[in-house]
C-alpha cells in the first residue's frame, strides 16, 4: 500500500496510509482512450486535487473512484481502484455501500424537488432507519457542518429549489455529509457559483479537511493552491487519453517549469501566456 506525506502536518516526515488508490486505470469509450494508465494514491485526511485542462478526463477519473462511471453506458474501465486495499470493481464490493462511504458533490447542485429538510436526509433515510424525531438532529448536524444551518434553520420545510445556487450546493454537500462518508469527491463544486459562494465552499473544504478526505477536481489553480495538500496534473494530447503528467505536493507541482503542458496550463490560468498547443 502506498504511503504519502501530507502538507500541513506537524511532522513533515509523518506518513499517512493511502485509503484510495488507482493502479493502471484505463477508461475507454469504444476505441477511444479517455484515461490511460492512471496510478495515484490518496491518503487519509488530505485534500487531493486533480487539475488539468478541460477534456483531460479529471471528472471521468473521479467517477471511477466510487464507480459512478458504471452509470455511463458505453464506457469500459480497466485496471484497479482500491479502497482500503479492496478492489472497488471486485464482486465482493457492494457498490451502493461504496458510494455511501465515498460521497460525491457534483459540478452543478442537484437538489430534489423537496423541502430543505427532506433533501438533507434523502440519502441517509434510505441508508439506515432513523426515527422521525431524529431526522431533524441528523439534518441539523449536516447543515451545521455545511455552514448552512444559520441560513435555513427557520425554513426547513421550504422547497430547496427556492435557495440560491450557492446555498443549493452547500445543501448538496450537507446531504452528502449526512451520510458520513470517509471520502468526498468534489467535481468542480464551485464552477457554477459566484465568488462569494465559491469562498463559502472553499472555507468549508478547509474546515472539512480536518475530519475527512477530499478529492477535488478544479480548474482554478488558486483554489488548488489554497486547499490542496497534493495535486495531480492530468494532461491529454489530442487523440490520446488523459494521463498523470505530474503529481506531488501542490507548490512543488505548481512551480515546475520543466513540463510544457503544465507551464501552458499554469500560464493560461494566470493570464501570462496561452499556447495553442
Amino acid at each position: 500500500m502506498i504511503e504519502t506525506k501530507s502538507k500541513g502536518q506537524s511532522d513533515p516526515s509523518e506518513t499517512r496510509t493511502c485509503i484510495l488508490e488507482t493502479r493502471q486505470l484505463k477508461v475507454y469509450a469504444g476505441k477511444q482512450v479517455l484515461l490511460q494508465g492512471i496510478d495515484l494514491g490518496i491518503s487519509e485526511g488530505e485534500v487531493f486535487g486533480l487539475i488539468g485542462p478541460s477534456g483531460a478526463g479529471k471528472s471521468t477519473l473521479l467517477r471511477c473512484l466510487n464507480r459512478l462511471i458504471d452509470l455511463d453506458q458505453g464506457l469500459r474501465v480497466e485496471g484497479a481502484v482500491l479502497f482500503h486495499g479492496q478492489s472497488v470493481r471486485g464482486r465482493a464490493m457492494d457498490v451502493d455501500e461504496l458510494r455511501v462511504r465515498v460521497g460525491m458533490l457534483f459540478q452543478q447542485p442537484v437538489v430534489f424537488p423537496l423541502s430543505i429538510l427532506k433533501n438533507v436526509i434523502f440519502g441517509v433515510r434510505h441508508q439506515r432507519k432513523i426515527a422521525r424525531r431524529d431526522r431533524l438532529l441528523v439534518a441539523e448536524k449536516a447543515l451545521r457542518e455545511a455552514a448552512l444551518w444559520q441560513e435555513v434553520k427557520d425554513r426547513l420545510q421550504t422547497p430547496a429549489l427556492k435557495l440560491s445556487v450557492g446555498q443549493q450546493q452547500r445543501l448538496c454537500l450537507a446531504r452528502t455529509l449526512a451520510m458520513e462518508p470517509e471520502i468526498i469527491l468534489m467535481d468542480e463544486p464551485t464552477s457554477a457559483l459566484d465568488p462569494k459562494s465559491t469562498q463559502a465552499i472553499d472555507d468549508l473544504i478547509m474546515e472539512l479537511k480536518k475530519k475527512r478526505t477530499i478529492v477535488l477536481v478544479t480548474h482554478h489553480l488558486n483554489q488548488a493552491r489554497r486547499l490542496c495538500d497534493r495535486v495531480a496534473f492530468i494532461s491529454a494530447k489530442s487523440g490520446e487519453g488523459g494521463r498523470i503528467a505530474c503529481m506531488g505536493e501542490t507548490e512543488t507541482v505548481m512551480s515546475r517549469t520543466d513540463l510544457a503542458e503544465l507551464s501552458d496550463f499554469v500560464g493560461c490560468e494566470q493570464g501570462v501566456t496561452c499556447c495553442e498547443s
Partner: peptide
C-alpha cells in the same frame, strides 16, 4: 426526470 437526479441519488448510495 433529469438524469442528474438519478445520478445524484445513486451517488448517495441508493440502489
Amino acid at each position: 426526470v433529469p438524469a442528474a437526479q438519478g445520478r445524484a441519488a445513486r451517488g448517495l448510495g441508493l440502489t
